[in-house]
Every structure is written in structure tokens, then in C-alpha cells.
Design a protein around this nucleic acid. Structure first.
Lengths: 123, 123
DNA sequence: TCAAGATATATCGAAACTTGATATATCGTG
DNA sequence: CACGATATATCAAGTTTCGATATATCTTGA
């Protein structure tokens, strides 16, 4: 299991949302699936991050009332909070990736040539 | 000026030391030079990091007394702390880069195809 | 000669970040 | 009807980060 730092978490979450709106639980499942279980965003990492993205205007949110199949017509039903990437969020994602590429390129300049030449370069 | 996270700082410092032993001040200058000023490791980031590397046995250290040209024969002289990468440190550097490559590959799987196809992929 | 900038190492503290543990509640299935 | 999955969220304790600060020496040029 690889450790996802905040920068990477943000990149991954915005990437997932760039394809379709989703919600916390589904996003965490998607991340685990798409990374073959290598990446994991726990609830305690996920929700603060989503709240931060919302505050920064990178995503918009809406609540969905999940209709219960319960026979009780008064049942409250479970709530689901949907996250949709905003234009600002899309822009941020692009910038984020561009930035990663730039960092990677410079970082690669530090990798010893012996390692770089043996196909271990980063860029 | 790009923000160097600890993971990247460690990679960069070990990479610099993999070529030749050096000391704190010189390492920070080397990093600024080799990155065209894009990366910067301030003293407050550099010295705790070097101490950590030393404690983990990734580098060995020795003090050098810098001979003063001062006419005072009793002058203490400035001290310089040299850092040399250890076999354990070399191994860590290789693992570090391998790990970066793995993370990058998985991360790239999250980048939207539209961005990936336009040459913005990470791996 | 002497002031200023470069060389050199190091700590402090406030803020931000990280994460396992915890809390709460509903849904689906055997 | 119990249990695992779904679903969101906070807390607290630990780690990380970094500008500011401290200390001291060396070098250069006005």
C-alpha cells in the first residue's frame, strides 16, 4: 500500500471527478480499484480534503436523498453528498499536472547518471 | 520557486551526495544551481533533514576544521560538517527512485485521457 | 581598516498536515 | 434480524514544514 500525500490525493480526486461527479465513499472505492489497491484514501483523509476543495471553489456540492426501500414511509433515508468539478477545478487539475511534469523534469536532473542511464529516470 | 516536499528533498540530497561527499551549505547551493533556482532547501529544512539521514545511517559525517588565514594563530577557525552517503543510503536512493516510478505510473492512470493524450501524462 | 555580504551550522515555534480511532446512522442480504 | 457494507464526519496525537532567529567566521572592496 503506497502512501498518498496531499498533493497526490488532490490530483487523484480531481482526476476522478474530471470524468464524472461522484461522492466520498465512491471516490475512495474508485481510487482503490483504479490503483489495484495500491492507493488508499481513508475517510479521515478524504473528507477534510473534499471540504478543502469545496472551500476553494474547485468543486461544487449537492445533497441527494437516497430513497429507502423500507416499508416505513417516514424513514429519513441516507444522504449522499455529490461533488462536481468546477471550471476552476478543471483549470487547477491541468496546472497541477503541468507542475508535476516540471518538478519531475528538474528532479530527474538530480538522479545520478548511472541510475538514469539504466532506465531509472523519472522523466 | 517550486516547493520541495520532504520526499523530494531526501531524493535530491541523496542524489547530490551520491556523486560526491558535501556539506550543508554546499548542498543547498548545488540544489539551487542544478535546478536553475527552482528548488530551494532553506537551512531550516536542510539541517533537520541531514540530521535525520545521519540518524538513519544513510550518511556518515565528519568535521573539518577550516584553516583560517587570519594572523591570529589562536583563531578557532570555522567548522564544516561533511556528509558522505553510506551503502545503506545508496540502496535507499535506488529504492526511492523505483518507488517514485511506481507511484508515477499508477498516478498516470488517473490523469484524464484527454490530458494524457495531449502529452500531459506523468509517466 | 572596517563594514558588509558571503560562508556555515543550527534551533525555535506556529501553522499545516496526516491518520488511526471513533461516532453515527442507514442499507442490503442471507 | 444480525452483520457487513454503505456513507459522512470529527477528534486527538503525532509528524512535517518553514520563516524567523541565533551565532560565528571568512572575504572583499571602498
Amino acid at each position: 500500500m503506497l502512501h498518498l500525500k496531499q498533493d497526490h490525493s488532490e490530483l487523484v480526486v480531481l482526476s476522478v471527478l474530471a470524468e464524472d461527479p461522484s461522492y466520498g465513499y465512491a471516490i475512495s472505492k474508485e481510487i482503490a480499484a483504479r490503483s489495484q489497491g495500491h492507493f488508499k484514501l481513508s475517510p479521515s483523509a478524504m473528507y477534510p480534503l473534499l471540504t478543502k476543495l469545496e472551500k476553494q471553489g474547485l468543486v461544487t456540492t449537492s445533497w441527494e436523498e437516497i430513497k429507502s426501500r423500507s416499508s416505513d414511509p417516514d424513514a429519513t433515508g441516507r444522504k449522499r453528498k455529490w461533488y462536481t468539478i468546477s471550471p476552476k477545478g478543471s483549470k487547477r487539475l491541468t496546472q497541477h499536472i503541468e507542475n508535476q511534469q516540471r518538478v519531475l523534469k528538474i528532479l530527474n536532473g538530480f538522479v545520478p547518471t548511472s541510475l538514469r542511464d539504466s532506465g531509472m529516470g523519472l522523466a
